[in-house]
């Protein structure tokens, strides 16, 4: 039953997408195949699915945990950027030093910075009752401007002719590659580990229970002796840390340096991914794969069918709308009772 909704949504997107492509004068069936099927047929595209899916999955898993508890971190993009900055700066600080400790140090710095960035809205919510949606969103802009200031200032490549970018990280500050000749890096394993750990935490651990309880019945959770402050802090720190880690991975992996264009919106897309995955780690994994697929396939369609980039984002927008909209059917079919609806109401709140 849970499968019917998403499958129907994808089917509808394909139908409407084919209409769109036909209107644009492109072969509709061929275009759909390029987007949804071709990326799966060769090694390179498959490896790129990992590259694109890794940050989405890492961030979305963390966000999903928080969303379950009604902690609305929508500033993952900022935490991602700060993670990239901290991880990258750590790597650049020891430029040209070999050592297997360099990468772990960078990851630690990135995750810690991301977590710290996320703790700002957490603390402001606990201490001053400030809405974390808004604070975390504001901090995205601050982070973006900070990155831009750093790569045009202190972190700029001294031999780079004033171009706004850092040095290229040296080898020991670059992520090991999983599959030789591709860009798929060990971050993918970290994402997978995050999914498994989150799954266990959610289903088997008390932490997961406290999250769900706070999301569904905050008052009951307080009676049960859980401290809200703790849940908020922990949720924000975990999601921020994972976003920061994803940022470091991105800088030390596919990009290999700090550039102003490093953030491409993974932090925002991951919010959508978290909901598409119904706030479940397994679902998040599938949703990130699907999103990655449309990105890679979309580029293929641009290249082979000469579709404008704009048509691809319209197509992606349609897919998201259908997926988000289809949720309603499974929700109503699965949850006929009033009590359950009410619980959902709080569980799915934004």
């Amino acid at each position: 039953m849970t499968w019917a909704g998403p499958l129907l949504a994808v089917a509808l997107t394909m139908i409407f997408g084919m209409i769109l492509f036909a209107v644009l004068g492109k072969d509709p069936v061929r275009t759909i195949l390029i987007i949804f099927w071709e990326p799966l047929t060769n090694d390179f595209s498959r490896s790129e699915l990992l590259v694109k899916g890794t940050p989405l999955c890492l961030i979305a898993v963390g966000l999903a945990l928080g969303f379950r508890a009604g902690v609305w971190n929508i500033g993952a993009e900022g935490q991602f950027i700060v993670g990239a900055i901290a991880g990258g700066a750590a790597g650049l600080a020891v430029y040209d030093t070999a050592g297997i400790w360099v990468l772990p140090m960078m990851c630690l710095a990135g995750a810690a910075a991301g977590a710290a960035w996320a703790l700002i809205p957490a603390i402001l919510r606990i201490r001053f009752n400030a809405n974390e949606i808004l604070v975390s969103l504001m901090l995205v802009y601050v982070a973006g401007l900070w990155l831009s200031a750093l790569v045009t200032g202190p972190l700029r490549d001294p031999d780079g002719f004033n171009f706004p970018e850092s040095r290229i990280f040296h080898d020991s500050a670059t992520l090991p590659i999983l599959i030789e000749g591709t860009r798929a890096h060990v971050g993918a394993l970290a994402a997978l580990a995050a999914v498994v750990l989150a799954w266990i935490a959610l289903e088997r651990h008390e932490y997961g229970f406290s999250l769900k309880l706070f999301g569904q019945a905050p008052r009951a959770a307080r009676f049960a002796g859980y401290r809200e402050a703790r849940v908020v802090m922990l949720s924000m720190a975990v999601s921020g840390g994972l976003a920061g880690l994803a940022g470091t991975f991105e800088a030390a992996g596919p990009v290999g340096q700090l550039v102003p264009a490093l953030p491409v919106g993974y932090g925002f897309t991951a919010i959508i991914v978290a909901f598409l995955g119904r706030l479940h780690p397994g679902g998040v994994l599938l949703a990130s794969a699907l999103m990655a697929l449309t990105y890679i396939g979309g580029e293929g369609a641009q290249l082979e069918m000469r579709l404008p980039a704009a048509a691809i984002s319209v197509f992606q927008g349609m897919l998201l709308f259908f997926l988000l909209g289809m949720d309603v059917f499974s929700r109503y079919r699965l949850a006929p009772s009033k009590a359950r609806l009410a619980r959902r109401a709080q569980g799915g709140a934004a």
Binding site: N42, F44, S45, E48, V51, K52, R183, E250, P254, V255, V259, A261, L262, P263, V264, I296, E299, G300, Q302, L303, E304, R306, P308, A309
Partner: peptide, 23 residues
């Protein structure tokens, strides 16, 4: 000829390039 437009100068550029080289 073929082209890819609006390719940000970040992590996606390398893939776009490789996709072209590969195809």
């Amino acid at each position: 000829t073929s082209y890819l437009e609006s390719v940000p100068e970040g992590p996606d550029a390398e893939r776009a390039l490789r996709q072209m080289a590969q195809s």
